[in-house]
Amino acid sequence: MNPETERQQLLFVWTDESSLHGRIVGWSFFDGNDPLADLTELEYRRGVDVLAAGWRLIQGSQLVNRPAGDEHQHGVLEFEWIFERIVALRPHPHGDHPQGVHPHE
């Protein structure tokens, strides 16, 4: 990637089973030089739809057995996929991230 002319977009998705054929149940989007970038709606229903749209898979979560004695434990979402695509650079759209600093609700 040439940072003078291009930027990276990242799409994290979480599927409801360990295959890319799984239904997407969550997502987060990050866009190069736009700290406020977001996708409030996702056009892809399954992980394979993201792939078909031209995104490159750069990481999929490992499948990990739960340790003995802790077989029923659950916490974070297990089936995470990270995709990227490289697009043309554009001027910084917003400036610094204005996220608040007050205590968590």
Partner: peptide, 16 residues
Amino acid sequence: LRRVHETQVGRYRHLR
């Protein structure tokens, strides 16, 4: 009921 720690789940921007 899921066992997570504070902003460990902050990565999730949108969950259905």
